[in-house]
Write a protein that binds this DNA or RNA. Structure first.
Lengths: 205, 205
DNA sequence: AAATTAGATATACATGATGTATAGTCAATC
DNA sequence: GATTGACTATACATCATGTATATCTAATTT
């Protein structure tokens, strides 16, 4: 006999709410813990007031939870401002703005650092985060194409794109954050990115 | 009664040899495994033909073994060439050479990548590796002091030091290594480091 | 030659993590 | 009132680090 099934507004709303609660507890645990090693589903479940199995029901696995946390952070991380930045008339100003936006993103929620740590132990999760980052590379490439003079070789363009991609990555931000505020790091990186453009805009004018 | 104790040439030689064998097996396991997660003392012990407890006797802990592996890699990594580089008359040529030496170091043994991954899960091991890296920062600072014009502010010097320190780090090398040979990465980084000097050598000449 | 010692082994155990399986609870929906 | 979906309770399998204890063996010392 066919099982009768139904969608329940109240139930799915409640489920969505517990899901949110678990994600919130997970990112809080990531923020407060001093290492990704301490991040266990048991801790998260207790912090969220649910059972460990509920976490599995909602996210399938530890990795699923981490991905959900990253997506949540990305949703509120201010990356939507990139569209405006890319639309700026001056591509160099757009690059400055892009650096600024990513500095804001990397610093907004310290959980992103722990999520990058998780890349080390979970290759598949690392792949997911890498794909997310590729969007940034495409954005950089688009700007570089507008900035580079026409005679710039494809190789020089690619080198510059990859270099600026690396300069705007989380590890670079974290490395420069020792003893610097977010804005100071931003300044350093903007200067570095402008300097990195050198080979593309020809001999010094 | 006093326990009589002695040092045994044959014994300690044999112990040193097993120690070497375990380190070799460990770095091989790190190289071949696709993630630090797969790196277990059980695997290493079997690969070395000893018991897991022998590893504990020799290295005390997983972390101790990882530190020993890093030290072994550092010993054969060519970093001794840094002394010659630092002694070069032209500090900019010395910087180029320094970048070259570190590109060689990061690429010589792929186990170094896995060791950096281990930083994510083991804070104390991360601290050990950070201390090792601080020597590089001091080296960079010494060169920058020779390169910077006298009017360069302390802050500008510090920014440049930290930036070049980051550019010569393993994460940066790894990021640029996708689709590039060691020498190509080296070229890109040398160019980037020279460009990063810009603010220190005054307005464009 | 006999006793002792250092290094390695054998075996067992405690702890904590991920992930799976099964049965049960309770409120929302049909 | 029967059924269904989300969550719970409990148990289990597996694998990792790390500790404890007793044993074995070959190198030294007396």
């Amino acid at each position: 006999m066919l099982p009768r099934s139904y969608v329940s507004p109240a139930r799915s709303a409640a489920a969505a709410e517990t899901r949110e609660r678990v994600i919130e507890a997970a990112s809080r645990t990531l923020r407060e813990g001093e290492s990704i090693a301490r991040f266990s589903l048991d801790t998260v479940a207790k912090a969220a007031g649910v059972t460990r199995l509920t976490v599995y029901n909602q996210f399938g696995s530890r990795r699923g939870l981490l991905e959900a946390v990253f997506d949540e952070i990305a949703r509120h991380g201010g990356l939507h401002q990139l569209a405006d930045a890319m639309a700026m008339a001056d591509p160099r100003a757009a690059l400055d703005r892009m650096v600024e936006i990513f500095c804001g993103f990397w610093s907004r929620d310290s959980a992103v650092g722990r999520l990058h740590d998780a890349m080390a132990t979970d290759p598949e999760f690392a792949e997911v985060l890498r794909e997310r980052n590729e969007r940034r590379r495409h954005g950089v490439a688009a700007l570089i194409d507008r900035i580079a003079r026409r005679s710039a070789s494809p190789q020089a363009r690619k080198d510059t794109v990859d270099l600026i991609f690396t300069l705007t990555s989380y590890p670079t931000f974290a490395s420069l954050s020792a003893g610097r505020s977010r804005d100071e790091v931003c300044r350093v990186l903007q200067t570095a990115c402008r300097a990195a453009l050198g080979p593309l805009i020809g001999p010094r004018t």
